[in-house]
């Protein structure tokens, strides 16, 4: 039993990352009907920006310039990184997607792949190939509860991810901006007639999606502190799968699918050799999609709107 519960804890942490990144994917995909393949790399850049900000704050604090408690360093790192990464997301939208808004969707998807490669190799060129270690922002404390080991980091990661998901759900369903976004997803041709600028909604969508990727990047750095320029590639693909699995336009769906993916991966690895993990995990997802082609919460008509 403890063995099972321990793996539930493992899966919750792993799933949080998929869920957070899938959320950003899902936003862009639902609202702009765009496959933003650069999203995984924005996550990677977010992690590196977080590393830079955190290292700078820790150094300032250690030098005695401004002495900050560690919780403040952590909060500041998240805030500053979110803002910087959101700006990167907006820049990507401006440079890579806006000029292609009327181009075939395939062109926009390819642009995403290219921006991704530019971000990876740009990072490689600027910082070099050496791995960096994410600073220890939070002192790790391990608790044992009936044989199950949980760290304060794990709890925090899961709680922070869930908080952001609830906040997003609220934002999209309850605010005016959220309403404009939902309208965009519904029919992007009519939206400008209502006096809403497509450009500003697209910019906002990218900013939010990238800020969420930045949060995922920092949490990732705390849980798996070795960063490398290609770490976003695989994550991007898997989160993309989760976003599709969740269904277009559903924040809950992307979150659930992200956690589901984490659970499948961890539990398959628990029983089978690791070589079979992705094989089994993605066969299950293929099966789900065969029976629910629009994902868990996707609405069948929405896919016809633009493609």
């Amino acid at each position: 039993m403890t063995y099972f519960l321990q793996n539930v804890v493992n899966a919750l942490q792993w799933g949080s990352f998929y869920a957070l990144i899938a959320l950003g994917y899902s936003m862009v995909y639902s609202i702009l009907m765009l496959f933003n393949f650069a999203h995984g790399d924005i996550f990677m850049v977010g992690s590196y920006i977080g590393f830079g900000v955190a290292a700078a704050l820790v150094a300032l604090s250690a030098a005695g310039v401004v002495v900050l408690p560690s919780w403040l360093i952590f909060t500041l790192t998240i805030l500053v990184t979110m803002i910087l990464t959101a700006m990167l997301g907006m820049a990507v939208e401006r440079v890579g997607y806006r000029p292609l808004r009327d181009a075939p969707r395939a062109s926009a998807a390819i642009t995403g792949l290219m921006i991704g490669i530019i971000l990876e190799t740009g990072n490689l060129a600027i910082l070099g190939a050496r791995r960096v270690r994410f600073p220890d922002l939070i002192e790790s404390v391990t608790y044992e509860i009936g044989g199950v080991y949980v760290t304060n980091k794990k709890i925090m990661i899961v709680v922070v991810s869930l908080l952001f998901m609830v906040a997003m759900q609220y934002f999209v369903s309850k605010t005016k901006w959220g309403m404009a976004m939902r309208a965009m997803a519904y029919d992007y041709l009519v939206v400008p007639l209502m006096g809403v600028s497509i450009n500003s909604i697209a910019r906002l969508t990218f900013a939010i999606g990238s800020a969420l990727a930045a949060v995922a990047g920092i949490l990732y750095g705390i849980a798996y502190p070795v960063l490398d320029p290609y770490m976003g590639v695989l994550f991007g693909w898997k989160a993309f799968v989760a976003a599709i699995l969740g269904g277009r336009g559903s924040i809950m769906g992307a979150t659930l699918a992200g956690f589901l993916l984490g659970f499948i991966e961890i539990f398959v690895a628990m029983v089978f050799p690791s070589t079979l993990r992705d094989l089994i995990a993605y066969s299950i997802i293929l099966l789900i999609l065969v029976f629910r082609p629009h994902g868990f919460f996707g609405e069948p008509y929405s896919a016809k709107l633009r493609l």
């Binding site: 793996n7 493992n10 942490q13 792993w14 770490m231 961890i266 539990f267 690895a269």
Partner: peptide, 9 residues
């Protein structure tokens, strides 16, 4: 791979 938690468990 970056997560080894199920193997380590």
């Amino acid at each position: 791979d970056a997560d080894f938690s199920s193997q380590l468990t």
